[in-house]
Amino acid sequence: MSIERREKWQGAALVAPALLWTLVFFAVPFAGMALMSLAHLDGREIVQGFDLGNYLKIFTEPALRRGISVSLEITALVTVLSVLLAWPLAWIIATVVPARWRRLVLLLAVLPFWTSYVVRSYSWALVLGEKGVVMNALVGIGLLAEPVQIMATRAATVIGFVHFFVMLLTLTIYSNLVQLSPNYARAAQDLGASRWQVIWHVILPLTLPGVMTGAFLTFVLCIGDYITPQILGGNNELSLPQLIMLQLGRRGDYPMASALSVVLMAIVTLAYVASARWLKMERM
């Protein structure tokens, strides 16, 4: 066997486990779900077939259609806010915080991840409540005359999400920042750029792959999340995952739940396509 051929086989053998894994645990279940989305519920019985009625219903029934817009609006807001907060935080950790303290600061940044996601969401419910710490403080220092409702609103959901994803994004952007050679900044400064110009014209564009990777992960995790909107949103509007759970838990409507899941997958795929040119996962 020639060396070239042997290398080809070795490559295939090395890739095979990952391919097999993806095939068994992603492709096959996804195909099953896609098939299920073409079935329909007749009374309380699932009837297999090739029926696009569920998809039609998703885009024509206001309550279902609104689930898509609610999810997209929340996810877009969370992603933008998280990036805006995470980039300066990552930059401060990477450049301002002395090297010997960085490890501690990063540890503090990931500390919230050590608690259960559900417990963290319920904790936010207590913090954001009308009698919670935030409102007591705002009323106490005279910024508000009386408590306003944050809990059980979209704002609560966004706050819960941003708290989680800022940390995730900080880590991805930080890992990108520390890989940058300091010579880029030095060269720009030699050419007369101010510190702000260095950040805006040199550092920021160079961290774009890290930002986009983090933003994409935030988008995917946020749009598919059920727990945070369920606990903090007060069921005053339903996101796509909540609608999916409603079909499964309440109605036993697996075809509709599958169709909604396919739509969710399609949105994630579109987000990937839109951001693919900036995504460089191998740099993470």
Partner: peptide
């Protein structure tokens, strides 16, 4: 209403005065 909630969230809301 302020919220539509499951058992735990309803209990929490009532217990905390939400």
């Amino acid at each position: 209403s302020k919220q539509v909630s499951d058992v735990v969230a309803s209990q929490t809301a009532l217990a905390t005065g939400e």
